[in-house]
Design a protein around this nucleic acid. Structure first.
Length: 685
RNA sequence: GCACCCGUAGCUCAGUUGGAUAGAGCGUCUGACUUCGAAUCAGAAGGCCGCAGGUUCGAGUCCUGCCGGGUGCACCA
């Protein structure tokens, strides 16, 4: 099945005709013909600035100066005899503006299924999207939410565009952060594994294990600094961390067992938090397996063979294996080379990431063992890796081996990501340069107002800054579940005010959908490279450019069809269908779109028709915000339409049929756009 | 020092391969519920697109320099 929409096919057809005309009339081969949307619908549905380009190319080729308008006139006949084209105008300095046959196109569009509702093909190359990747030692905060929501929306966008996608969530269960929380349990709380289990059991639902660890982790941060947040870390205290870290890496001891319990319990908490937002994973690769299954050793051999790494015998990196880079010039303060293996023989983060990236691309020649970790309500299973062959479940899907790997990681790690990419590229040029994509995004920081609300005291210096960076180590941040809870409570109040008669269950469901809509839209409306200065008032708002605004438009559209008489609706749909064959019916339909009001109606149709194109663009540009902006614009345009035109009470049958078709189109495409963003439309709100 | 990102309305941000009169939201002011739902809609005010050059028929968008802000450049992850 084709994944291209009516509009996209039409554009391809028009491009081909222009290319042929340019070749035949001017002997010029145009490889990429730009298509624009005119600023106003009265100027047409599509605009081709192709005459400007041709004027330049003709001058280059022959020295002859031709007026763009004249060139456009010569090209015009090539577009005029296309079936869906009503007329073509030459406008401005030489634009070719195409006007569609509105009645014919409305009929076609009404019969079309938006591609986000189609099923994906299994034979397509696999895209791997890795996101979330939260250190499993404390509750998730809103910065982690940006990562997860961005990654999940991108997954949905790729799937909507027909791609096959695998979702991975990397678990760094052997890192410093987990060690810190374990240090807290052992040295601050004086607890053993049974104690921690008992504590976990005793915690209330509103302050679960990840919340407890959030506070504990902050206390450990203070502990290392002997109680003074501004003091340097105490070397003796840091030794405790090193001991714990070493024990975790070695495995097979009490400390490692405690770390295993803590980290996997936190992973469960994170999965639960993400599930609230509709975010699911296919597989959870763990760092412990990267170590135990010797992924690095294999990668290291490859890198040595390829001559990518060098053993340093002198200088300050003596005894280390380094990868030379020209990413920046070396200075006295900063080496240009990146250390992959320390002088004590242990591998750095970048090294482990290279091995993992090679596995994701199917280039390592090793694999994990897998066992089920979590089953979602829909039956979907999130698998986790294991290094124990006896635990392996043979029914596990084949993971890894992606044709493209997208790593959703914040922009602060761009340098390391580039090192990884280059190392992979040195072994497999194509895989490194084209298949390894760092989907970078800027951080979520706190606005000064948000800090004030959290009771955080700011220095004068900080107050002058536009935003304040969050810090898990300092316990400075907004916990994800806290924010979701507040959103749900607020939404619940709003629903209550409007629909007091609904069953409690219905109210809660709607409140949840609205809260998720608000949060997901809030995190997606910014482009990736924009820093979000988190503000409670803004994040908790349901008015203006928000998820609930978009949902509201869809709910209103839905209520039209709930109240519209079924027979009337069927007759209207039949009337539109008839316009496909019956010229008289088509002419009647066309008249609805005449005049100024007709332009306004048509503008909504054209906007709704651009769903597939916009989704494909968001996928190609790797920017979910484009789709979010589109959904908002569509909702806004629909709200105006809704305000201006009464559908149920419309007495002219043809006009009503057109209005119904337009409303249905808008409702359908808006719902599809929101679904792709992971936002559901409530029944009532 | 070097690398990357950013600078657009009072504030927060969009602006698709360079295209027609630079757009939203919030905030401010004015108006619209006897209505398919006012979580809405309409209108007004608000812009040397950081500065200076350059390329082009055409620059918010591309190039160079400068100014201002952010992030990174660990034998941390």
């Amino acid at each position: 099945m084709s994944t291209r929409s009516t509009l996209q096919k039409l554009q391809t057809e028009l491009r081909a005709r222009l290319a042929r005309a340019a070749r035949e009339r001017f002997g010029i081969a145009l490889d990429d013909i730009a298509i624009e949307v005119p600023p106003r619908v009265a100027l047409g549905d599509l605009a081709f600035p192709v005459a400007f380009e041709l004027a330049r190319r003709i001058k280059q080729a022959t020295g002859e100066k031709r007026a763009p308008r004249q060139i456009a006139e010569e090209l015009r006949p090539a577009l005029e005899d296309v079936a869906s084209v009503r007329r073509v105008e030459v406008a401005g300095a030489g634009y070719l503006n195409v006007f569609f046959d509105r009645a014919a196109l409305l009929v076609t569009l009404s019969a079309e299924t938006p591609f986000s509702e189609r099923t994906e093909a299994d034979d397509r190359p696999k895209r791997i999207v890795e996101h979330t990747n939260i250190n499993p030692n404390k509750a998730a905060h809103i910065g982690h939410l940006r990562n997860a929501v961005l990654g999940d929306a991108f997954v949905r966008i790729l799937r909507a565009a027909g791609e096959r996608v695998e979702v991975q969530n990397y678990i760094d269960n052997t890192g410093v952060q987990v060690a810190d929380t374990v240090v807290g349990f052992i040295h601050l709380e004086r607890m053993t594994l049974p104690d921690v289990r008992a504590l976990d059991q005793s915690l209330p639902p509103d302050r679960p294990f990840d919340y407890y660890c959030w506070d504990l982790y902050a206390r450990v941060g203070l502990f290392y600094r002997n109680g003074d947040p501004d003091a340097p870390e105490d070397a003796d205290k840091l030794r405790l961390r090193a001991e714990v870290l070493h024990a975790i890496e070695a495995g097979g001891n009490d400390v490692a067992e405690l770390a295993e319990y803590v980290s996997m319990r936190i992973v469960e908490c994170h999965l639960k938090t993400m599930q609230r937002l509709g975010i699911e994973y296919d597989v959870l690769p763990r760092e412990s397996e990267i170590l135990h299954l010797r992924f690095w050793e294999r990668a290291f051999e490859r890198l040595k063979q390829a001559g990518v790494v060098r053993y340093e015998t002198e200088g300050r990196n003596a005894g280390c294996w380094v990868m030379p880079t020209d990413l920046h010039k070396g200075t006295e303060e900063h080496e240009a080379d990146k250390i992959l293996v320390r002088s004590n023989g242990t591998v750095t983060y970048a090294g482990k990431d290279i091995a993992y990236q090679l596995w994701k691309l199917g280039l390592l020649g090793l694999d994990f063992y897998y066992k089920p970790f979590h089953t979602y309500p829909n039956g979907h299973i999130a698998w986790v890796t294991t290094s124990d062959a006896r635990e392996h479940d043979p029914s596990a899907p084949k993971f890894g081996g992606g044709a493209t790997v997208y790593n959703v990681i914040d922009a602060r790690q761009s340098y390391t990501q580039e090192v990884v990419r280059r190392a992979v590229a040195a072994l497999a040029p194509e895989a490194g340069e084209r298949a390894s994509i760092h989907l970078a995004y800027e951080m979520v920081a706190l606005s000064p107002a948000a800090c004030a609300e959290l009771g955080i005291e700011l220095s004068d210096e900080d107050r002058a800054r536009p935003f304040i960076e969050m810090s898990g180590r300092k316990g400075l941040g907004v916990k994800a579940d806290d924010l979701i809870n507040r959103l749900e409570a607020n939404a619940r109040r709003e629903v209550e005010a409007r629909h007091a008669d609904l069953a409690e269950e219905e109210k809660l469901k709607a409140a949840h959908q609205i809260a998720v809509g608000a949060l997901r839209y809030f995190l997606l409306k910014w482009t990736r490279n924009s820093v979000i200065a988190f503000d409670f008032k803004e994040a908790l708002s349901f008015d203006g450019e928000t998820g609930p605004y978009c949902q509201y438009a869809a709910v209103r559209a839905g209520s039209i069809f709930r109240k519209l008489d079924a027979g009337k609706r069927a007759r209207a749909e039949e009337l539109v269908r008839r316009a496909a064959e019956d010229e008289q019916a088509a002419e009647a339909l066309r008249r609805v779109f005449d005049g100024e009001a007709g332009d306004e109606l048509w503008a909504l149709v054209m906007l709704a028709a651009r769903l597939e194109e916009t989704t494909a663009q968001a996928a190609a540009m790797e920017e979910p915000a484009h789709l979010a902006k589109y959904a908002f614009q569509l909702a806004k345009t629909f709200n105006l339409f809704y305000h201006r035109h009464r559908i149920i009470s419309e007495e002219d049958e043809t006009r009503q049929a057109a209005l119904i078709a337009i409303a249905e189109l808008a409702r359908n495409r808006l719902g599809a756009a929101l679904a792709t963003l992971g936002i559901e439309v409530p029944e009532r709100m």
